[in-house]
């Protein structure tokens, strides 16, 4: 094998390639329900399996355990709890961010699963696992039916 230490791959004979392709992802049957309720009503919805009784968030079209169709939607409101969180100090290139960004997994009472999202209106050292939080939505005119229609979760007032 070649054993010289090479710190920059471009110092070898090479060909620079590119694999970019663009995509448009449909949100699906359960996703349309979920994102429409966020966009129109500022509500987070789960889906309840009428066979096993489990409420899943994000909602699904089918229960992955019973393999039956989920037809019952459950309004979970906009309040949840921090299940775990991280404080991100660097961007994807490893460069230091001007301000760290907090991301958390938010769980909701009566449902299994949760959403990952940003935390806001709080300092990194103030965040705790178990902390009650609530969603802060973008103004209705700016909502597009995406997970970013929620700006972030903030401590419950």
């Amino acid at each position: 094998m070649a054993t010289e230490k090479i710190t920059d791959i471009r110092h070898m004979l090479h060909w620079p390639g590119h694999m970019e392709t663009d995509y448009i992802y449909t949100q699906g049957i359960a996703g349309e329900k979920f994102f429409s309720e966020i966009k129109e009503n500022e509500k987070i919805y789960g889906g309840r399996c009428n066979h096993c009784g489990q409420v899943f968030v994000p909602p699904r079209l089918y229960c992955e355990r019973c393999f039956r169709k989920i037809a019952e939607w459950r309004n979970l409101g906009s309040k949840g709890v921090v299940y775990t969180f991280t404080v991100v100090y660097i961007d994807i290139d490893g460069a230091k961010l001007d301000e760290p960004i907090m991301y958390a997994l938010i769980t909701f009472d009566g449902a299994e699963g949760g959403l990952i999202h940003r935390l806001g209106e709080i300092k990194p050292h103030e965040v705790q696992i178990g902390m009650p939080v609530e969603a802060v939505f973008r103004p209705q005119a700016e909502r597009t039916g995406s997970i970013n229609d929620i700006r972030y979760f903030k401590p419950q007032s």
Binding site: G31, V88, L105
Partner: peptide, 30 residues
Amino acid sequence: AYAFTTIFDPIYSRPLGVTLIWIFALEMHR
């Protein structure tokens, strides 16, 4: 790291700018 950005759910996770390391950070913290 750029290849990892497209392994996540395209509608629930990727719009948040998720990277591999912070997913593991969430698990490690829990």
